[in-house]
């Protein structure tokens, strides 16, 4: 959660991270979290399932309509195969139903919402990605790309990312706030806050362990390490 906001310039050989930063001309780092193969595989499976169910239902509906039925069936097949993804992506904020279910979204690789040309390109090029069978090229391309793009994505300049969610702040433990005796950088303040917000997930021994790392340098009595750090966290948030 804290790294959502920190900017880490990524040089080659830097720390691995699933989050990439888009530097805007104004010098602001926008964090994007490209979605990898497993989750996209599942999203595609859900979409395929939905499409095949629709296809079967419409097929049944048009079974007894003779030549007209055959025509309608081929039209609906065409729409479902080639336009299902495009319509949903462009008209539903880059989310086909499968992607929406898993919290994914297609965007341009510069972070802007996906439009008709890009969506059409990336979906028409599924033809290439699914060669020679069952999306083999797509899988290999996604494994081999640092931003998990398949060939269609590379050609259209699109990314599939996890939708940004508003960070949910946990409640801080109830202790009287006390400002820190030294100046803390932004990262350190965030770490202190994280420590306090996650107090319910961490075991008490582990909390003790973590708090004693910084207790002496922050002039906190060792016996009061955990509540002391919590107190500083509260003061960072401006609570009393």
């Amino acid at each position: 959660m804290n790294a959502n906001l920190t900017s880490a310039p990524l040089a080659p050989g830097a720390l691995l991270d699933t989050q990439v930063y888009l530097e805007t001309p104004e010098g602001i780092d926008l964090p994007l979290r490209p979605a990898g193969l497993p989750v996209r595989f599942l999203a595609f499976a859900i979409d395929a399932l939905i499409r095949s169910v629709i296809l079967i239902l419409t097929g049944i509906a048009w079974l007894y309509m003779g030549k007209l039925g055959a025509g309608l069936a081929s039209i609906s097949t065409f729409l479902l195969l080639w336009w299902y993804m495009v319509f949903f992506e462009v008209l539903n904020q880059g989310r086909s139903p499968g992607k929406q279910l898993l919290g994914l979204q297609v965007i341009h690789s510069d972070g802007t919402p996906v439009g008709w040309p890009a969506s059409l390109t990336r979906n028409l090029l599924r033809f290439v990605d699914l060669l020679p069978f069952a999306y083999c090229l797509g899988i290999l391309s996604m494994i081999n790309s640092s931003r998990f793009q398949r060939l269609g994505d590379l050609a259209a300049g699109t990314l599939v990312v996890y939708q940004a969610q508003a960070p949910q702040r946990g409640a801080l433990p109830e202790v009287p706030a006390r400002p820190a005796s030294v100046l803390l950088t932004l990262d350190e303040q965030r770490a202190l806050l994280d420590f306090a917000e996650r107090h319910q997930q961490l075991s008490s021994q582990r909390q003790e362990e973590l708090a004693t790392i910084i207790a002496p340098t922050l002039h906190i009595a060792p016996s009061q390490a955990v509540p002391g750090v919590h107190a500083i966290a509260r003061s960072i948030l401006g609570q009393v």
Binding site: L15, D17, T18, R33, A35, V39, N144
Partner: peptide
């Protein structure tokens, strides 16, 4: 650690695995 450590959702954690294997 050669990766940025932070609590991720499970899918993202797998993505990190792909990046690690790729390196």
């Amino acid at each position: 650690a050669q990766a940025v450590l932070r609590p991720r959702n499970t899918w993202e954690a797998m993505d990190l695995g792909i990046l690690l294997a790729r390196r």
